[in-house]
């Protein structure tokens, strides 16, 4: 892969053991992000985008999930080969941070917002300090942290920032909570923010504001964002590049213009076709999302694909680059306009 990538995932396989058997949730996924780039990871529910996000953060459920193959290179280091201790100290919450899907339940309900932010600051601040068992920071440090937090909350356009810090999570609105989550993701001056469907739980009217804020802050600070969503409209609004996943396989990756203008993969085409268009014609995709326990062989989309032939079921297509910024995995790519 190119040296300039900030994050580069190669041939990642993740499986979950369930009551009914082993589910291959990620089947050899390739994916990359350049520094400062905002990449949308798009797909239907259950396509593996959340699993991919959690693999990067190293927070897959320990007793059921297993990474069976592949590598996750971040900042020239393979995270999968690193000591848990080092990841916890230097990567997770430091260079890679997280904006969760549901700002309602992702705050701890019995601590004030201030306590939770100050704790993150204490453990994850970019200035290194040593701490005791519960990390009693010195008062001067706490004051410095507090000032930094106040400034950050102002940049995410929250009103009465000192008041908010004294409140409990249930006392502030959903939009404000997600602004807080974004602020918390920026605390440690990370290189990459993983935003897992950050607006799904929010009111439609607030969604656009939050997305705009996220994009603006990421741009200003040159932070890369991995943005998972099933909402193509949202991806169009804030992303530089979009990668589409289907049933645990990535199928196409392109710049926003190429993606929305000249999609090449049949699945992408049908995905875009299922958006309501001006003509008012809504095309569905025939068939159903496959179960991941005994998934279709080869390209997992082949049973539902109008272009599929016998070789699609035999072996998964290799990565193919029609142009420098456009990747697809398909034997029969289309040339749509």
């Amino acid at each position: 892969m190119m040296a300039e990538e900030l994050l580069s995932i190669e041939n990642l396989h993740v499986s979950f053991s369930t009551e009914n058997g082993v589910a291959e949730v990620l089947d050899g996924v390739n994916f990359s992000i350049k520094p400062g780039e905002i990449v949308g990871l798009v797909g239907e529910s259950g396509c593996g985008k959340t699993t991919l996000a959690r693999s990067i953060l190293g927070i897959l459920p320990k007793n059921s999930a297993q990474i069976t193959d592949g590598s996750i290179i971040f900042n020239h280091q393979n995270i999968l080969k690193m000591q848990e201790h080092d990841i916890a100290r230097n990567i997770r919450g430091r260079l890679i941070t997280f904006v969760p899907q549901d700002p309602f339940s992702s705050f701890n309900p019995v601590f004030t917002i201030g306590t939770q932010i100050m704790d993150l600051m204490k453990w994850k601040s970019s200035e290194k300090e040593s701490h005791g068992f519960f990390g009693r920071a010195r008062k001067s440090e706490r004051d410095k942290h507090y000032q930094k937090v106040l400034k950050l909350l102002q940049t995410v356009q929250l009103p009465d920032v000192e008041g908010i810090l004294r409140k409990y999570p249930h006392e502030v609105s959903g939009g404000q909570r997600q602004r807080l989550m974004i602020a918390m993701a920026l605390l440690s001056e990370p290189r990459l923010i993983i935003a897992d469907e950050p607006t799904t739980a929010l009111d439609v009217t607030i969604q656009a504001q939050i997305l705009k804020l996220l994009r603006q802050l990421a741009r200003e600070r040159n932070v890369a964002v991995l943005f998972t969503t099933h909402d193509l409209g949202a991806a169009y609004e804030i992303c530089d590049r979009v990668t589409v996943m289907y049933a645990g396989q990535e199928v196409e990756s392109a710049t926003v213009d190429a993606f929305f203008g000249k999609p090449r993969h049949p699945y992408t085409k049908s995905l875009l076709g299922s958006l309501p268009s001006k003509s008012g014609k809504l095309e569905g995709i025939p068939g159903q999302i496959p179960a991941l326990i005994n998934p279709p062989s080869g390209c997992r989309f082949h049973p539902r694909c109008e272009a599929a032939s016998t070789n699609c079921a035999e072996e998964r297509p290799q990565v193919h680059w029609p142009s420098a910024d456009h990747m697809i995995r398909c034997y029969y790519p289309r040339t749509y306009d």
Partner: peptide, 28 residues
């Protein structure tokens, strides 16, 4: 819960997550 998932994703030390954040909720 989701908040523990978040706290883990943000890399808080697990001793802090368990003995501070989880314990207070459990004790209620």
């Amino acid at each position: 819960s989701n908040y523990v998932l978040y706290e883990q994703a943000m890399g808080l030390p697990s001793k802090v997550i368990i003995w501070k954040y989880v314990l207070r909720n459990a004790l209620i």
